[in-house]
Amino acid sequence: MNWAEIGTYAAAVFLLVGALFTLVGAIGLLRFNDAMTRLHAPTKVGTVGIGALLLASMTASFVFGEGSFHELLIMAFLFVTAPISANFMSKVNIHRKTCVPPPVPPHGETWSTLVKDEIDQVPTGTQS
């Protein structure tokens, strides 16, 4: 058993793990019945699945051709942006009231999505 064979096995395992996690993310997107619980599976399990596929691509490039490591960049980008997308989508859920309303924070504060700011309070006389 030489290094190329071990690398091929490793790439195959990464491919299978990535395929499984991506599928689980999509199943979770489809089967939960609340808008907030639906957010959990695809934003994280799916992201890790794609991360595993990128890892497989990196391993395969080192085994079959000249190595490349710039898939790391896509992986890092996905891992940095996934929390921001999830945060925006849960803000949309809270704003449109399509989920169980969150509890009110203590000491008279409010959640910043629910704060009424000047954008919402356009004076009626200005629209002629």
């Binding site: 997107l29 808008a35 695809p42 949309v92």
Partner: peptide, 10 residues
Amino acid sequence: TADRILALDT
């Protein structure tokens, strides 16, 4: 709406 955005993101 959030479900549709989430589906597009996925």
